[in-house]
Amino acid sequence: MSRDYPDEPADEFSRPPRTVTDREGRDVELLSADATDRESVLEMYLSFDPADRAQGIPPAREAAIDDWLDTILGDETYNVVAVNEHSVVGHATLVPDRHGEHELAIFVLQAFQGAGIGTELVETLLGLAQSAGLEKVWLTVERWNDAAVALYKKVGFETTSAESFEIEMSIRL
């Protein structure tokens, strides 16, 4: 089954590194990240609120988080972290699927939610993807997660399948 993508490519997105101020007035740096940033990313997931998990990720136990980080910080992945006062408070990742397309996921610590960081993270990650020459990015999101669906639409994702528990969305870069 092949995935649908919008015909038209998206505009250029901002690329990392950059600094933004969130709606609470906090300065947040958006930085490209890789396996060398593993410790600081792990710290964030260890303090992640279990209630904010979606579709089984991030995993709950530390050993499972560790395995999962091998995947999302592995070869051919693209990562951007949001850093405030030397701590990672948000993380967005692109992981290649079997078709050479990339799946996106994003996580923001509860204290930094609702302040615009998620949108900045996704846009900056897509900017990184554009600089790497990626063309096809997709994601799934739970149907009842209105905030996330609205965020992805604002960034430029289009819904490609809404027949299931999860909505599938995609963007062409």
Partner: peptide, 17 residues
């Protein structure tokens, strides 16, 4: 049911749903 994508997200297929 409930296959995981490479990224780790669980998705239910249409038959299970």
């Amino acid at each position: 049911g409930g296959e995981r994508s490479t990224l780790g997200k669980i998705q239910l297929g249409s038959i299970v749903e």
